[in-house]
Amino acid sequence: MFKLIYKDLYQLRKSFLLYCGVLLGLSLLADSFANGAFGALFIVVAVYGLTLRSAYYEDKDNALTFLRTLPIQAKTIVIAKYVTVALLLSLVGLFALAVAAVFHLMGTPLEADLLSLYLWATAGIMVLVSVFLAVFFRWGYNRAVNTIRLLFLSLFFIPIIISRFSQDLWPQNSNLVETLGRVITQPLFPYLMASLVLGIYLISMLFSIRGFKVG
């Protein structure tokens, strides 16, 4: 498994440096990028981009078939990919935090509640890559990319459509919004969210192990 993780990280080394370079460059250019808030977007974009890149390498050269010719169990290949993505997420998150910390020490004020912002970004991207990897291992790269596109479109357009056509219902829904707001501010909420996201990630991994197809 470690050899597979090493292989993934080795393949992604240039892309990783590129993403980190972009964050560093933008932070040097403007304070609005250096206050740490941009790091949350960076986490989402970089982790998704690196996951996509890693899957692309496997797809382009049909390398999953190659891996299956080696003495490696199918589930090891799947688990290794999930561990790699989790590792990338940690590295990218730590880098974003480190950049924010350095610029803070240099005098740039930090965005209020920065850690919470990063946690939301981490949760969001983990759900996104869970969906991506589950589709990738079962149906291949192209379908995985298209699924994420559809998901993005849904996330953007469904709320707009709902709000456009149900304006009359909106006041009745405000109770729901208030309730959600109360839940989110509960002290246990971050733990609940972390458990939920980890659960989704694990379910996605189990689904991928069951559905992994090559050849």
Partner: peptide, 12 residues
């Protein structure tokens, strides 16, 4: 094992 198509990581 040698297959019909040699499926390796092309950039390595």
């Amino acid at each position: 094992y040698v297959g019909e198509f040699q499926q390796f990581y092309g950039e390595m």
